[in-house]
């Protein structure tokens, strides 16, 4: 049984999700202690539990310590299997974070899978559905399996009520992913989501983006959503490149000016464009685990990529990968970091 120290590095829920993904995919039992040690509210939060429960379902794991506030969890996976899954998670956590814990395993499961998750689709501190579908999923498909994600309803905080459906046609093994270069860059495109809020918010945002970036942003890029349960506002900027598409997300919140939402996303886009790295931070975080699984299954390199200077989050992720798999991940470089797994 592998022991993971949950207080490692950044010490948050990422360690748990990464460990769950490996455990389910490779059948590695693990125990994690000091979960979220030193945080204001230590131990498992509800959003972490939803990830644990989803992972438990896809591999019939035996789990102990899966309670709110628990700082110690033991997860012993059984047989990984695909199938139909439905996870209603409310607003405790995001649909995409649950996918983070289970998608890598479903990509190598013996059966195809359809997973429906109900909850938030666009919320702070979580990958947006658009990022998941347009940036991550194409890269996953490049590794062999066929993943399709569709959004049936948007779910914004605090009402949630969104629904995503992800179909996974698994592969027996995974191909390495090599993304040392992004290739030629296309013109960025803007899309703005606005639900149950005054239209001028979207207009102000569009104008501000246009003032700051050379971007494709026709009036049709503003999408007015009626089906969601609560108000929501999202600013999305896609940067299409030859080998990869990056998606940057800004989430509007009550009390946060539209301009601030825009400026934050624009800064991320500028930083990425100015760099030569293939992947920006969030996407780099997401591809590490599938690459490591590929390496474990093929006993060869899982691939390599270039990215921006590693965040503590990414470093912690690499440490967790090393702890769960015994793989040595190489990270070299200064302004542009090359990661080899």
């Amino acid at each position: 049984m592998i022991s993971i120290d949950g207080s490692l590095g950044e010490g948050g829920g990422q360690i748990l999700r990464t460990s769950l993904a490996f455990s389910a995919a490779l059948g590695i039992p693990f125990t994690i202690s000091n979960i979220r040690k030193g945080r204001e509210k230590p131990g498992l939060m509800r959003q972490h539990l939803t990830a644990v429960q989803a992972a438990k379902r896809i591999c019939d794991a035996q789990v102990s310590g899966d309670a709110v506030g628990s700082t110690h969890l033991t997860f012993e996976p059984g047989a990984l299997h695909g199938g139909e899954f439905h996870f209603p998670i409310g607003t405790a956590g995001s649909t995409t974070m649950v996918m983070q814990a289970i998608l890598p395993a479903l990509m190598v499961a013996p059966q195809p899978t359809r997973v429906t998750i109900e909850g938030g689709t666009h919320q702070t501190h979580a990958p947006s559905f658009d990022f998941f579908a347009r940036a991550l999923v194409p890269l996953m498909n490049r590794m062999g399996p066929r993943v399709e994600a569709r959004l049936e309803r948007h779910g914004f905080y605090p009402a949630g009520g969104g629904r995503i459906v992800v179909d996974v046609m698994p592969a027996t093994s995974l191909l390495p992913l090599n993304l040392l270069s992004r290739g030629g860059r296309g013109k960025p495109t803007l899309s703005i989501l606005l639900a149950k809020l005054p239209m001028n918010i979207a207009e102000r945002e569009r104008e501000r983006v246009l003032a700051k970036l050379t971007i494709d942003a026709p009036p049709q890029c503003m999408h007015f959503i009626d089906s969601s349960h609560s108000p929501g506002n999202v600013v999305l900027i896609d940067v299409p490149c030859e080998h990869v598409t990056e998606v940057f997300t800004g989430i509007g919140e009550v009390g946060r000016p539209a301009e601030s939402v825009v400026d934050h996303v624009v800064n991320e886009v500028r930083q990425y464009i100015a760099s030569e790295a293939a992947l920006a931070r969030h996407l780099a975080d997401q591809v590490m685990v599938p690459m490591a699984i590929a390496a474990m299954l093929t006993k060869q390199s899982g691939g390599s990529f270039t990215t921006l200077p590693l965040s503590l989050h990414a470093k912690t992720n690499l440490q967790t990968i090393a702890a769960m798999t015994g793989l040595t991940c190489e990270a070299s470089g200064d302004r542009i970091v090359t990661v080899r797994i």
Partner: peptide, 10 residues
């Protein structure tokens, strides 16, 4: 899923 909790569940 078989549930054989290792410790008393909360």
């Amino acid at each position: 899923a078989h549930s054989q909790p290792h410790s008393r569940p909360a």
